[in-house]
Amino acid sequence: MDILVTVPLKEHIREDLAQTFPTVTFHYEEAEHEWLEKSEVLVTYGNDVTESVVDRAKNLKWLMVASAGVDNFPLEKIAERKWLVTNAKGIHKIPMAESMLAHILALSKGFPQIYDNERQKVWDRRVPQIEISGQKALILGPGTIGSEVGRLLQAFGVHTIGYNRSGKPSLNMDEMIQPDQLMDTLPKVDSVISILPSTPETRYLWQLEHFEAMKESAIFLNFGRGDFVKEEVVLEALHKKLVRHVVLDVFEKEPLREDSELWTMTNCTVSPHISSLSNQYIPRSIDIFKENLKRYLDEEKEYVNEVDILRGY
């Protein structure tokens, strides 16, 4: 069996795959390579899965995405081919949760101002210091990543509130709310963290009225998808100082254009979609792939992180 891998892998990982699966031939090429037409499995980050690639992959049966999102794929075309699609959901939880917690702590302890004062050699002991212990955090999308940031926040004494459509309990959430409870909850929380995927239900879900309902002292963080809130809505909220600070790791269009006002807003932190990056990213992805490849070769029917391609997750 031939497998085309477009994800850059270090030599020791390639050797491990070859030794673990001696009956499989791995090809490390770009998606447009001729091996695409002969391969049964494609392992990719996903940014090279175009309509042309789908059309040419005549023998493909399984698409392994070494990331979580599939919203930019030609979904209907892939669904027509009835491929098995799996992803690396769950591998981002540790780096992303650490990043979110780091931003919340940094802003609460005045680190941006402390660092700026250091560069300017300013001795100023009036930098505001806020404790997060006893605060409330609303986590939009308390899944794998949300439950991990919930765990970390709880360790700091933060009361965690999870938001999903069903209201069903989620790990490391002190309480759960549903959409009809959102507006009543916003005035009570000190931080709002969005980790929601991009779906028809979540696209541009967040409006100015949501910022208006929040405390002026609250922090808003978007680490899910850039189309959760329009840039113009964020800018209006920042200009009106509806919240204390906004942290964005994702944007409507990436990279963020150079003339965007977000770069210069002192109450906004621009993070270039790096919260999920980690030195453990590839090893964790490959571990999931290896487990699924064993099941695939054994002709099992249940896989880790199987994706409903039309739902997007």
Rank of each mutant, 00 (worst) to 15 (best):
Y45A: 12
E209K: 13
L42P: 01
V122K: 15
V54N: 08
P128E: 06
L238Y: 01
I288P: 02
R126W: 05
F26M: 05
G167I: 04
D71K: 13
L84S: 04
E261C: 10
V149E: 00
Y163V: 06
N72I: 00
A106P: 07
Y303K: 03
E11L: 11
R257N: 12
M176Q: 14
T144N: 12
R257T: 09
K61P: 03
N117I: 06
L140K: 01
P112I: 09
K10I: 03
K253S: 14
E236D: 06
L262Y: 10
E175Y: 08
G226Q: 08
Y296N: 02
L205Q: 13
L152K: 14
F73H: 07
H159F: 13
T50C: 08
H27G: 11
L235F: 03
L107R: 12
Y281W: 14
L75A: 13
L171Y: 04
A155D: 01
K136A: 14
H12F: 09
K10C: 05
P74E: 10
D71G: 13
A137E: 01
H33M: 07
S133Q: 13
L42W: 04
D180H: 15
Q280W: 11
V149P: 00
I309M: 07
E232F: 02
V53K: 07
S147W: 01
N117C: 14
M265Q: 13
K290V: 01
F211M: 05
G226A: 10
A137V: 08
Q154V: 03
P112G: 11
L105S: 10
P128I: 07
I104S: 03
P200M: 14
T44P: 05
L153R: 06
S217P: 01
T266I: 01
K61E: 14
L186M: 11
L105A: 09
K61F: 09
R295A: 15
V24L: 08
Q280H: 15
L242R: 02
T266H: 14
E80Y: 04
L153M: 12
A57H: 04
K82V: 04
V41F: 02
E302G: 03
N72S: 14
E306N: 00
K109E: 02
R125F: 10
K215W: 09
L248K: 06
V304H: 11
L75P: 02
V5Y: 09
L196R: 05
H159Y: 15
P179Q: 11
N47L: 10
E148I: 00
P179F: 09
N267R: 12
I288T: 00
K82N: 15
L182F: 11
A102V: 01
A237D: 02
M183C: 03
K253E: 13
H239G: 03
D249P: 05
L221A: 13
I193W: 00
I161L: 13
K109N: 12
E15V: 02
V85E: 02
W206L: 15
S194A: 14
W206M: 15
E258P: 00
V53Y: 05
M96N: 07
H273E: 09
G46H: 06
V250K: 04
